[in-house]
Amino acid sequence: MQTPPPRARRLLLAVDAPSLLHRNHHARAHTDLRDRTGRPAWALHGMLRQILEAIDQFAPDALLFGLDDRTTSMREGLYPGYKAGRAVKDATLVEQLERAASLLDALGFRTVTPPGLEADDVNASAATWASREGWDCVIVTSDRDSFANISAHTRVLRLIDGGISGSPLLDERRLRALYGVDAARYLEFAALRGDASDNLPGVAGIGEKTAPVLLDLMGSMRAVWSDIEHCGGENLVATVDSWCLETGARRMGATLLKRLTAPGARERYDFNISIMAGQTDLELGLTPDVPGSPGLLPLDRVRVSRVVDFLGVGATTDLALRVLTEPPASEG
């Protein structure tokens, strides 16, 4: 592969490890792949293959892996129904989730398991860290919550069934094309819409079609709530109905106001924001100016060979040696 030209900014690849493990468990369980001690390894192997493919594609300078705290959940403490309704995890998946950190740490990557929190919080903190340090960031996940972290210097590779090469890389422009909202307003959009996968209902009557119109016309939910509090929503109704007149849509200003002022609507929105917002100030332990510190590429060749070979797939060991033990693109 031809070496890409040097970049002006270094690149951090932030990986939602549980997301990759879940997807690969369901996609690869039929292989019944085992490591050299006979333990289930298909999800771990699939996760590692996708990581290697992402490194091959993006040539990052450092990697950070977020993991969920599997012993306690701050969000469940606030809302016992959080993620209720999801299927019980298969025992072989649980085992591989619990072994993921040791595999990644053994390779020389940097992993973070924040107490009471999730990989989404690590992603949010990674985007903040990259912005502060003058780096670019690519978040690898299948979770839409990370879309709130998209900015001029942070993109999200949203994993779908096509794998790394077939997954969309979302930036500010593509996010707006998909949802009709700016990245800075995505969290507000999500709080209005709700998230069925996390068992979080949205504001009744305001979904994926109405929320973008509201945010686009009013600028932010802060402006919406302020108008309701100080003017009874008069500006909101007038602005929305004016837009409806211009576009030929049916007038809906009064209906929107009624839904936003319904009992519990503001409380539902505020609660969703508190649950959905990723924590941005986690200590990530990244020390890019210290050679050989965890997470920095390239990794030690002997170490990579020993660790990956334990999974028993020679082709993956060869790929790992190629993409993990050569200097990143920014050093070209």
Rank of each mutant, 00 (worst) to 15 (best):
D120T: 05
R39M: 07
L178S: 01
D216V: 06
V181M: 03
G180L: 09
S167D: 08
L214M: 13
G134R: 12
S330W: 10
N24F: 02
G314W: 08
E267W: 11
S151K: 12
R155P: 07
C137Q: 12
Y186M: 11
Y269M: 03
G253S: 13
G332W: 07
A223G: 11
T92G: 01
S165N: 14
E95F: 03
A62G: 03
A8L: 10
M221Y: 00
G205I: 04
G233W: 02
T72I: 05
G81Q: 13
A29P: 01
K209W: 04
L44Q: 06
K89F: 04
L215K: 05
A119K: 00
H45N: 14
E208W: 05
I228P: 09
E133W: 01
L297K: 04
R301Q: 01
V313M: 13
C137I: 14
G77Y: 07
N272A: 09
A54T: 07
T255S: 11
V307K: 09
P328T: 06
A320P: 11
R23Q: 13
Q57F: 00
D300W: 05
A59V: 03
E267Q: 14
S220I: 00
A62P: 01
V88T: 13
D318F: 06
L33N: 02
T317Y: 11
T261W: 03
L44G: 05
M252I: 13
R23T: 08
I206V: 15
D61K: 03
A119T: 01
A190V: 08
K83L: 07
R222I: 01
P60E: 10
A223R: 15
A127G: 01
M252V: 05
L297F: 05
H153C: 11
L52M: 09
L319T: 07
A177T: 06
H22Q: 13
N199D: 08
M221G: 01
A277N: 14
L170P: 00
G233L: 10
R9G: 03
P327H: 15
T141M: 11
R23A: 15
D309H: 08
E229I: 05
R173F: 09
S330Y: 04
P327A: 13
R301K: 01
A184Y: 02
M74K: 11
K258F: 09
D198P: 02
A101Y: 00
S305K: 15
P40Q: 07
L217Q: 14
T111H: 02
R28I: 08
L12Q: 10
P5Y: 03
T111L: 02
Q50W: 12
F310K: 08
V290Y: 02
G81I: 03
P288T: 04
A8I: 07
L52E: 03
W129P: 12
V302N: 12
A262S: 15
P327V: 13
D136V: 04
T287R: 03
H45S: 15
W225A: 09
E98A: 04
R75N: 09
G180S: 13
S151Q: 10
K209M: 02
L192G: 14
A100T: 10
G278M: 09
W42G: 00
